[in-house]
């Protein structure tokens, strides 16, 4: 029983990491209607930037905030230069561009920073909290707390602020929004920027358990896309819950089901997605797609 609880907590912590990156994916999808496959690689670049600022002498918190600002600009620039010209020409063109970006960014990162893995400074104390016989590391708790704070901020942003509402409108029906005077193109750019900033934060969390290298996100992005799909692609809360389900399932199954172990565990999220989407095609928290014929 104790073991199971322990697995649950470590599953929640790794699930929070997937959820954090899934949040960035959801943010782009919600504000621009595009699935950004390069979100992980963007976050990887941001993590290198954070590390660079830290090495240059900035305190870690300042380095993360600085990297979030730089990432905002980078994300907005990518939207304007690479996504904008193809948007509206074909429904899938922007997503294909992001696949190209996935490859391009990892190549660029390798060229700039090399392939040797680097360690990232710890954000939380390296101690742990003993609750009964369960050991909860501050790092796990910290990751979960940062994620919850982020999702709360995003929730309030989309549901309670005017800017959030206009972003939803711009993604939902650009033409109608423009006819109401909403500056759609600026909002789409802003959406990519905010998502990249969230990705920078996710990158710092991910780097708590992974070495910083151009390939650090390759596995994580798959879990994050799975989490986003599971949660319905448009719901921040869904992204987090989706991340947790996958994290916990992965931890429990790889520990308890002998033949799966560490090698086959990447199959777990796929099986979960398949099962959920079979029963509920819009994901657990996805808005019901309404169409009138």
């Amino acid at each position: 029983m104790t073991d199971l609880l322990q697995l649950l907590v470590s599953g929640l912590a790794s699930g929070s990491i997937y959820g954090a990156l899934a949040l960035a994916i959801v943010f782009v999808f919600r504000s621009t209607g595009v699935v950004n496959f390069s979100q992980g690689e963007l976050a990887m670049i941001s993590t290198f930037v954070t590390l660079g600022l830290y090495k240059a002498g900035a305190p870690l918190v300042i380095a993360i905030i600085g990297s979030m600002v730089i990432s905002f600009v980078l994300g907005a620039a990518i939207e304007r230069v690479l996504i904008r010209p193809v948007q509206g020409r074909s429904e899938h063109a922007p997503s294909i561009i992001t696949l190209g970006l996935f490859l391009g960014l990892s190549g660029i990162a390798g060229w700039i920073w090399g392939l040797d893995p680097e360690t990232f400074p710890g954000m939380f104390p390296e101690r742990s909290l003993e609750v009964g016989s369960v050991r909860l590391s501050y790092t796990s708790l910290g990751i979960i707390a940062v994620l919850l704070a982020t999702v709360a901020v995003l929730y309030v942003f989309f549901e309670r602020t005017r800017l959030g509402l206009m972003m939803k409108a711009a993604a939902s029906n650009p033409a109608t929004s423009r006819l109401a005077g909403v500056p759609v193109s600026r909002l789409l750019m802003c959406g990519w920027g905010v998502a990249s900033a969230v990705g920078a934060l996710a990158g710092a969390l991910i780097a708590q358990s992974v070495y910083v290298s151009p390939s650090m996100m390759v596995a994580v992005i798959i879990y994050a896309l799975a989490a986003a799909a599971l949660g319905g692609l448009s719901s921040p809360v869904g992204a987090v819950v989706g991340g947790w389900i996958i994290g916990v399932a992965e931890a429990v199954v790889s520990d308890r089901v002998g033949f799966i172990g560490g090698d086959l565990k990447i199959v777990v999220p796929l099986v979960i997605i398949f099962a959920v989407l079979l029963v509920k095609p819009t994901g657990l928290f996805g808005a019901k797609e309404v169409s009138r014929v």
Partner: peptide
């Protein structure tokens, strides 16, 4: 009918009143 189908009626009107 240029409405924002996934937003509420009230939110549609708020978007209409953006300016």
């Amino acid at each position: 009918r240029g409405t924002l189908t996934d937003l509420s009626v009230e939110d549609n009107l708020r978007v209409g009143g953006y300016l």
